[in-house]
Design a protein around this nucleic acid. Structure first.
Lengths: 141, 141
DNA sequence: ACATATAAAATTGCATACAATGAGATTGTG
DNA sequence: CACAATCTCATTGTATGCAATTTTATATGT
């Protein structure tokens, strides 16, 4: 039995898991100001880029499935940020579309990335190295 | 408004968040075999190292609070892997202790890290770079 | 045309996460 | 000693995540 390898500090997955949680958590004060959770925020980011998108494609961008997205999108709809409508050309699809209120949220949201970057204790160079390694793993999934 | 910075692909947090989810998810088939979730698995890892520990200290290792740990530990207790007892010297503390069944789980669990490492598309050297950067961020929290 | 296969969302069930609050025990200080 | 502050754990409420299943719609083969 490999005792050493089984220790928490020797596993890559644990700092990945814990670090992701902590960094996401550090968004909360800023996201509270604009009334979004982190997952809602990244969903809105895709919409600010694409205007309209169906649930499946949104899920491919975010690595999330309809089990997570359907209730999340219903909450964004209740908050007035998006509209959800069946695609008339293919009724299987639900098309997500920004409302004016959702579009307007883009401006205050655009201030957040810089604030977060400032409180990360790594250089721009280190961030790029980290970014590349993470996508190397992610692209493999 | 900084449109470029607001794009999903330009944020460090997103690949961190998505990568952590996907890697944790890749544990599932192996963890299913021994009847643990990922969070239960990392809690057990701390116990395999420490034998006994209170909830607060366990939470400091795992970056989790009692709101997550209390129900999780109750499930591990129901499954027969641990015991939960009040510390007689200080009744505020709950002492977590492995059962024989929990101790026995260490052996099949010890096979998992190697299996995971093999399916990660990065070199040992890259894993170490990643590890160090993640802890640099984590230690700052 | 019609039965079958496939596709997209929604639903269900379970287990986290975490902020906020509550309850009980202990400690520090006047 | 009294008692306020602190500490530890549990509870509550909300929002994910995700596997598995169901529902509805579309595509495909004969």
């Amino acid at each position: 039995m490999d005792n050493e390898r089984l220790k928490l500090k020797n596993q890559l997955c644990f700092p990945l898991y814990a670090c992701a949680k902590e960094v996401v958590r550090s968004y909360k004060p800023y996201l509270d100001e604009i009334g979004l959770t982190y997952t809602q925020y990244i969903a809105m980011m895709v919409l600010w880029e694409h205007e309209t998108i169906n649930v499946k494609t949104l899920g491919e961008y975010l690595y999330l499935d309809s089990g997570t997205l359907t209730p999340l999108l219903k909450r964004l709809e209740s908050a007035g940020f998006i509209e959800r409508n069946r695609d008339l050309n293919d009724e299987r699809n639900v098309i997500i579309k920004l409302t004016l209120k959702g579009e307007a949220l883009k401006q205050p949201a655009s201030m957040i990335p810089e604030k977060i970057q400032k409180c990360l204790p790594i250089t721009q160079n280190e961030a790029e190295i980290l970014y590349k390694l993470l996508y190397k793993i992610l692209d493999n999934k």
